[in-house]
Design a protein around this nucleic acid. Structure first.
Lengths: 199, 199
DNA sequence: GTCTATATACTGATAGAC
DNA sequence: GTCTATCAGTATATAGAC
């Protein structure tokens, strides 16, 4: 049983190291060699635990996406009015200049070319969307948003502001564009809110 | 003079081919070999006209960014109310699943590591931002937006919705998320607009 | 289960003939 | 100005010892 324990440690080290490198460099630009060197593991171990780079990346990306989703669930499930929870999600503390561990994968052609990696990516945003749609629907039901507001449209607007904010911040080498984009979105939702009550 | 003419043709072919590959694959994943094969040019020609991959990419990215900016200027300078022009920009016909030729570069670590490529990227979004801030300021002056709306914040919100829309669409393998995000943003600006007049 | 050695193809760049 | 030949280095994967 010692071998099993040791195996799990090596396996976990490979996955965690790959998760970090996927975030830093993306999939195509992350080489098995870079993973092995950072994890202090020999070549053979990786090919013992995984069939190759893709299978390892799948395991790592699954963990990364699960972490992002958990963080979103936590902030969207706290107390406060529905719209306040959306604002909290938008203003969530993020490592902006590092980019989104999930969203960054959408720019990598090799990710979209891998059925498994693309499926994780699609599913992650699908679940994020569902969470946000649900909170926005609550906002409409509570008359925090106008009755004709479309929660499905607005959910993608919210997600896009965050994902686009990352892009603008990295392009500028500065978090300011992200912060402005989010502040602008929150102000639009708040006006919408004030208006919603009036109608 | 024949040699000069021929040189310009080869040079242009290299730049245009690189521009296409940067859009398709990004910078890191575009190899000199791929450029040369698609442009039907030998190895030596590239190193005659350019010092290497980076210098060629700079020339190609400059052209690509100029094209995107020109397109934005065209739609933002048409007639119509300021807010209508912003809506037109948001709803502009785009090759959504291909991604934004400018924005996609922000996800490429090698682009940010190149001083020249990063400068083009930063400048392109800086100029887009100026264009949009200016139209949003017109909207405030014309009382199409509330007097306390911040054109600088909202400009980044608009840019982020577009850039994030690309990310969501590629992640879903479907243009629908882009279209929902834009529709949501337009609806928020319109409500803001209706409200602006009332205040 | 882990390691080192090796294989094959590709990367970005240079050399030098024409 | 353009070409082919070549280089040292890396990417992904396999072989086989321990």
């Amino acid at each position: 049983m010692y071998s099993v324990t040791r195996s799990n440690d090596t396996r976990t080290a490979l996955i965690e190291t790959t998760k970090a490198l996927l975030w830093e460099r993306g999939y195509a630009a992350t080489s098995p060699r870079a993973i092995l060197e950072r994890a202090h593991v020999g070549q053979g171990s990786m090919y013992h635990h995984f069939s190759g780079k893709e299978e390892l990346a799948v395991a790592a990306f699954e963990r990364g996406a699960a972490g992002v989703l958990q963080r979103a669930r936590d902030v969207l499930a706290t107390d406060g009015t529905p719209l306040a929870r959306i604002s909290n999600y938008l203003m969530l503390q993020r490592e902006i200049l590092r980019g989104c561990p999930v969203g960054r994968m959408a720019g990598d052609a090799d990710v979209l070319a891998s059925a498994e990696l693309a499926a994780i990516l699609t599913a992650a945003f699908g679940q994020l969307r569902e969470l946000i749609v649900s909170v926005l629907q609550e906002a409409v039901d509570a008359e925090e948003l106008a009755h004709d507001a479309d929660p499905r449209d607005l959910a993608d607007t919210v997600l896009a502001v965050v994902q686009g904010g990352y892009v603008l911040a990295r392009a500028a080498g500065d978090v300011a564009p992200f912060e402005r984009a989010v502040r602008g979105a929150v102000s639009l939702l708040e006006v919408h809110s004030a208006d919603g009550a009036a109608r």
